[in-house]
């Protein structure tokens, strides 16, 4: 299942994140290197990065008040 997890510690070039915003609020994102996620504080959502590709879909984001391991993906 490695292909469905975020990849903590992967190299994310800060320059590549400079124009990226939360698709819901259009507010800023901060990169959490430990979780390998892009955090939208305003939306309360964490967007995963899989295989180096940020997944900017609200449906696939993790609510910030949920467990980062078990709730990383919606049920399939």
């Amino acid at each position: 299942m490695t292909d469905t997890k975020s990849d903590p510690g992967s190299n994310v070039d800060p320059k590549l994140l400079e124009i990226l915003v939360c698709p819901l609020t259009k507010g800023p994102l901060r990169y959490d290197p430990a979780a390998g996620e892009l955090i939208s504080d305003r939306a309360g959502l964490a967007y995963p990065i899989r295989d180096g590709i940020p997944i900017m879909l609200v449906d696939e984001a993790r609510p910030l008040d949920s467990d980062p391991i078990t709730d990383a993906l919606p049920p399939r």
């Binding site: 124009i19 915003v21 819901l24 940020p54 900017m56």
Partner: peptide, 28 residues
Amino acid sequence: DQVAQAARQRGLGNLTTRRGAAEQLPFE
């Protein structure tokens, strides 16, 4: 995934990939 892999093979270092919907763009 295919696009990112093909871009690497072609040495296109200025191409990055982002996933999302056309109706909700995650860009400034």
